[in-house]
């Protein structure tokens, strides 16, 4: 493997991996959540040796046992993270430094019955608001300030909702196992989606993941189980802007680069990680995703293909974290986003 790929084996399959944000946007810590193990854990890691060009070795700072599989994990801010389980629970976890200067993870709020005991599949965060979705088709609106849910939309979907994102503070988009994308206006009283459109025509293709352009929030990317990433301009959602098909199996996660959204990153069940670079010479930045011609972007494979699913990626600056089913986490340094 290349010089800039660092691999660490942790003896459990990683379902989610996320940088822990810090005020300087230069995080050295990240969290992992495992799945499909006898006992699952959320682990907090720290990386040392960024500055020197030596071997980078993450070491574990703290570990929190977790009931069931971690289905989604996101940091709300540097001190709080949220995790959901396939037992239908939602946890608000605090990262705190105790008297002896040790950093510890602890449960702050547990929403036990968020999904009636059925698996919670994903959630989205907007400031202090959280929207969770699950196999029971319910959408919960929670706030990290409050244990009581803000709003519950029962039977929001007939199928399993696999992914969710906030479009605005009052608007949600969800994708389900039938391949329907739904937009929800949270101010409306009725428990019905304000818009429904299909991800991929008539056939049954489950949406697996969603990503939001960090600044132009009407620009949405959705991954599906056949390996396509579809880009939509939600101002005119009758027809997708772009369909990017390089993954051979299900797309597990897709992400716009937080600072450089002209780059999209995605990983898949076939063990591949792609970098889609939307800038080409002469092309105006940002606009790259709005043109539907395929030759407007470059595709890079960031790592030799693994033999196991890559479940999760997370980016910060030019550092990419990957978590895989081969019980290894990879850190790729120097991802080419600046040139």
């Amino acid at each position: 493997m290349g010089r800039n790929i660092h691999c660490t084996y942790i003896s459990e399959k990683i379902n989610k991996i996320r940088w822990r944000p810090n005020p300087f946007n230069d995080p050295k810590q990240f969290v992992t959540g495992s799945w499909d193990n006898d006992e699952n854990h959320i682990r907090l890691w720290e990386v040392k040796g960024f500055e020197e060009d030596t071997d980078i070795n993450p070491f574990e700072i703290n570990v929190l046992p977790f009931d069931g599989d971690v289905t989604e994990l996101k940091c709300v801010n540097p001190d709080y993270l949220i995790a959901t389980s396939n037992e239908g629970k939602v946890y608000l976890i605090k990262i705190a430094t105790n008297i002896t200067e040790e950093i510890c993870l602890s449960h702050e709020i547990v929403w036990d019955d968020a999904h009636q005991g059925m698996p919670c599949t994903s959630f989205a965060v907007y400031d202090k608001d959280i929207a969770t979705v699950g196999e029971d088709g319910r959408i919960n609106l929670l706030s990290i300030m409050n244990k009581a849910p803000t709003r519950v939309i029962d039977d929001a979907d007939s199928c399993t909702v696999n992914c969710v994102e906030f479009l605005k503070f009052n608007e949600l988009i969800t994708g389900n196992s039938r391949g329907q994308m739904k937009i929800w206006d949270l101010r409306a009283d009725e428990e019905k989606a304000s818009q429904i459109f299909m991800l991929s025509g008539d056939s049954i293709v489950a949406a697996t993941c969603l990503a939001q352009h960090p600044t132009q929030r009407h620009l949405t990317a959705a991954g599906d189980e056949h390996g396509s990433i579809t880009l939509w301009d939600l101002r005119q959602n009758t027809y997708p802007l772009n369909v990017m098909t390089s993954h051979t199996e299900s797309v597990t996660e897709v992400q716009f680069h937080p600072d450089r959204p002209e780059h999209i990153f995605s990983c898949g069940q076939a063990g591949d990680v792609f970098h889609w670079s939307g800038i080409k010479q002469g092309a105006c930045e940002e606009s790259a995703w709005y043109t539907s011609t395929t030759n407007k972007y470059d595709i890079f494979m960031l790592m030799p293909q693994l033999h196991t699913t890559i479940n999760s990626i997370d980016l910060n600056r030019d550092r990419l974290l990957c978590g895989s089913d081969n019980e290894a986490m990879y850190m790729i340094e120097g991802v080419n986003i600046y040139s």
Binding site: D36, D69, N86, P119, T121, E225, E249
Partner: peptide
């Protein structure tokens, strides 16, 4: 199999 994501894996 205890959730759908695992079911999908098995199917795949």
């Amino acid at each position: 199999i205890n959730d759908e994501s695992k079911a999908h894996r098995v199917i795949q």
